[in-house]
């Protein structure tokens, strides 16, 4: 199947500290890939390098046959094709729920206000937040904020959705509502790349699981393979620590 994003020899260093080392990794259309690993393993950095919130130090990111790290490439247009969901939600504080999902469509994609609102409402319904269109970010719970953030990213109708530990900042009782929405999205055939600590969820929804440790991809395979028959010692040790 067609590769949506193809990463070749990607590296990232902060000064002399190498956070990502020679990463080769790709996501195919319609695939749901979960990246697991302990804190500091570089999984969030990898995700943030993909949409260039962090500038990679070396390597290539091939999107539709073009290396987007070429200076000539329009990174703003590229980013609209990647929906990003953050750990800390990052809803725009000066916008209500609806206009959080509308502002990008109108200002960046140049859609009309009417069209943008129709699209926004459609996705707010998908995440179950369509009744809160008038609410401001500070008036919502964490789980509600994250669902709106998902709707905001979906409203741009991206090729891939990137989730950076979307449930890590949530109270335990709110984790479920966000994971449920994500599970439903996975079933619609959306291409998703998820950095997560929710092992149960990763096992259930992924087509592929990637285990990272110390800036490298240690193991990459089906959920059954990674969770039931891990081949590397580091994967085994990690799973032993995280799954009780």
């Amino acid at each position: 199947m067609e590769k949506v994003i193809d990463i070749q020899h990607l590296s990232k260093s902060y000064g002399s500290h190498e956070v990502l080392k020679d990463i080769d990794f790709s996501v195919k259309k319609g695939e749901v890939v979960c990246i697991i690993g302990s804190s500091g393993s570089g999984k969030s950095t990898l995700l943030r390098c993909i949409n260039l919130l962090e500038k990679p130090s070396g390597g290539q990111i091939i999107y539709h046959g073009e290396n987007i790290l070429d200076h000539k490439h329009d990174i703003h247009a590229y980013r609209t094709k990647l929906g990003m969901v953050f750990q800390q939600f990052n809803l725009f504080n000066n916008h209500n729920v609806l206009s959080n999902c509308v502002v990008g469509q109108v200002k960046v994609l140049k859609r009309s206000k009417e069209e943008a609102e129709t699209v926004a409402k459609k996705f707010l319904k998908v995440v179950g937040m369509d009744q809160y269109v008038n609410a401001k970010s500070k008036q919502l719970s964490g789980g509600q904020k994250q669902r709106v953030a998902i709707a905001r990213a979906l409203s741009m109708e991206p090729d891939v959705m990137l989730f950076d530990e979307p449930t890590s900042a949530l109270d335990p009782e709110m984790v479920g509502e966000v994971l449920k929405v994500m599970k439903e999205l996975a079933e619609t055939g959306l291409t998703m790349l998820i950095v997560t600590h929710e092992m149960e969820f990763a096992r259930e929804v992924s087509d592929r699981v990637v285990f990272m440790d110390k800036g490298v991809i240690v193991e990459d395979g089906s959920p059954e393979q990674i969770f039931n028959n891990p081949t590397h010692e580091r994967t085994k040790a990690f799973l032993k620590r995280t799954i009780k």
């Binding site: 949409n51 919130l53 703003h76 247009a77 980013r79 609209t80 990003m84 990008g104 953030a149 741009m156």
Partner: peptide, 8 residues
């Protein structure tokens, strides 16, 4: 970051 991530 959120604004940049949607292409602004």
């Amino acid at each position: 970051e959120a604004a940049q991530a949607i292409g602004m």
